[in-house]
Amino acid sequence: MSENEKAAAFRPLLEKELEELRALSETGAASRAPVTLDQQSVGRLSRMDAIQAQAMAQATERRRLTRIQQVEAALKRIGDGEFGYCLSCGEEIEERRLETDPAAPLCIGCSRGES
């Protein structure tokens, strides 16, 4: 598959994923908000549950933001004409790897530390 064909095939997938990630980030903002610790309205266990849920939502958002950065970087590589090439060794990334993760910046060998 040529560089232009790869870009044409994977750009829509990356753009769709980026749009979905941003939408999820916006809708999950309320669950990451600070927990109100009003002992009159909520019991101790309920507050602990709320704090735990908040921490999990924050961790999920951190992972989501990391993925957003990866997808944006892949879209930039498409724009720069460098998509589909390993950032470490410069070799072409296998098409099967890109099908699994279009934002993959490294070939299998470099991601395993083999190069």
Score class of each variant (00 low, 15 high):
S111P: 06
A8C: 00
E114Y: 09
E99A: 06
K16Q: 11
V42W: 02
M56A: 15
L87W: 07
R62F: 07
I93T: 01
E26H: 05
I108R: 05
R62I: 14
E15M: 06
A57R: 03
A57V: 08
L45E: 15
A50E: 08
A59N: 13
Q39G: 15
F83Q: 01
M48P: 04
E91Y: 07
R97D: 11
P12T: 05
L13N: 00
S31F: 09
P12N: 08
G28R: 05
S31I: 06
Q58F: 08
E95Y: 02
Q40E: 15
L21N: 05
L106K: 09
D80Y: 10
G81W: 06
V35M: 10
L13H: 03
K16T: 04
C89M: 13
R11A: 12
A55Q: 15
E95G: 00
S31P: 02
R44D: 15
D49I: 12
L21I: 10
E61I: 03
I51F: 08
I93S: 01
E91L: 09
L14T: 01
E26G: 08
A7S: 15
E99F: 09
L87K: 11
L37T: 10
E92P: 04
R32S: 06
T36I: 15
R96E: 15
S46C: 02
F83N: 00
L13V: 11
S2N: 15
E17L: 12
R97N: 12
E20I: 01
S2A: 11
A103H: 00
